[in-house]
Amino acid sequence: MEEFLNMGGYAVYVWPSYGLTALFMIALTLSSLHTLSKRKRQLAELEAKRPPRRAPRTAQPQTAQPQTAPTQTAQESSSS
């Protein structure tokens, strides 16, 4: 075990290499997940505030809301 940790005397080079790699991967993952949950919350708040779009404006059959909302996003964000 001692020998393994010592890495033939090169411990101060090998372990920081692996450590920094792990640190980067874990930190970026946590940061990305945190941003994701933050956006989910923001989105939920904003969607709660907007007036419900249940009633169709014309006599057309109502399409399922989850379908229309994201496609609208695509159009909105590509035209913005």
């Binding site: 970026l28 990305s32 994701l36 956006r39 989105l43 994201p70 996003t73 964000s77």
Partner: peptide, 22 residues
């Protein structure tokens, strides 16, 4: 990680659009 970050960015776009509309 790409998929996670893309989901975030898509939501961010939607947040921007909704904020603007409001």
């Amino acid at each position: 990680l790409l998929i996670v970050r893309m989901k975030s960015e898509l939501m961010a776009a939607r947040v921007r659009a909704l904020s603007l509309a409001q």
